[in-house]
Design a protein around this nucleic acid. Structure first.
Lengths: 191, 191
DNA sequence: TATATACTTGACTATTTGGTCTAATTCCAT
DNA sequence: ATGGAATTAGACCAAATAGTCAAGTATATA
């Protein structure tokens, strides 16, 4: 129970920032959605920024962990499972896009603290993908390659695909882009 | 001379929005940088939003036209010139990223007018790339393929690559991603 | 030159913003 | 139970926000 007020704030802040961006996120709206009064908030956090950074970090790390860490614990089928994860659109929020990309775009060039935080989060995401690729190579599902670079490219292609849909409103475009990415990656499969 | 006030506003607005986003762009700063008073601005534009949309549309359309339309006017070497344009980092502002991506991320899910405008601009960019690919196929530099889909993928990969750099601060990551994209596209070259 | 139209000036307004402060309440160990 | 600390409540504040307006000046055309 001790965590509820803080957690309610973290949850509401993430939602509000994901929807409206950091600069567009109004404290009053966060507080209203969280059902928490201003004084309580400033007891738990020293500023809007600190609260937002905490929300971003905690929520996104959790998401990425849930999505990718279990793939790493497999003993085979790494690449197939990774491709399936990319193709799975049920978890994607195409209207709002990718929270990582959103905040990087908005804040990385404006605030050093956001810059540092987002850099770490983006690295973490790429690390998951690199580690999965390394596993796939280890078990000889893939031929050896520069997995750091490939993970970078995969991440970029996925972020770009999500952006396309946010621009066009057409989810099929994500599917189409991922299909091309898949074809490319299947070229690394060992026969 | 008749256009100077309006043009000064368009230029300053684009810069401010590119740097701080639409919501973060303060009218006072735009006016200060443009050297224009508020009343003049509201003579030329009915609102901050209308001015920003005009600035975005005019500046980005011009940029894309300058970058891609001359490639279309070539008579050969379409793919090579396109790849060279992708690899050219001298025009890229990695700190601020891509203005199209920035505004799509920030505004497409928040405002219908921004959504419509950015959808058109994004389509325009993809159209240029598709048309260049079609030309390359026409002159038999490339084998036939679904150029609409390929243009979508290329755009996504490029936008994602720019985002990577904005997140990491390392321009080499753009080069690395584009290198992989180039390898992939070279697979379409006709021997 | 007269006059109407286009444009500029800058003070003013209403609202929203993040943040502060003090008092009240809840919680918990003794 | 009681004293002290943690937490919550919500009124309050200064700054910043986009937008308004009446009055002025330049410009063009008759």
């Amino acid at each position: 129970m001790k965590e509820t007020t803080r957690q309610k704030l973290i949850d509401a802040t993430f939602e509000e920032v994901f929807s409206h961006g950091y600069q567009g996120a109004a404290l009053v709206d966060i507080l209203r959605n969280a059902g928490v009064h201003k004084g309580s908030m400033y007891h738990h956090f020293s500023s809007k920024k600190e609260m937002a950074l905490a929300a971003i970090q905690e929520k996104i790390s959790t998401r990425n962990f849930e999505k990718y860490s279990k793939i790493l614990q497999l003993s085979s089928g790494y690449l197939e499972t990774l491709l399936a994860a990319f193709k799975d659109t049920t978890q994607r929020d195409f209207k709002r896009g990718c929270p990582i990309a959103n905040i990087v775009q908005e804040m990385s060039n404006l605030d050093e603290d956001f810059n540092k935080t987002m850099k770490l989060i983006y690295e973490e995401l790429r690390r998951y993908i690199k580690d999965i690729l390394d596993k796939a190579i280890e078990v000889k599902e893939m031929r050896a390659c520069d997995t750091k670079k490939l993970a970078l490219f995969i991440t970029a292609a996925l972020e770009g695909a999500i952006l396309s849909v946010k621009a066009s409103g057409n989810p099929q475009e994500y599917v189409d882009s991922v299909e091309i990415l898949e074809d490319y990656l299947r070229g690394f499969i060992r026969n």
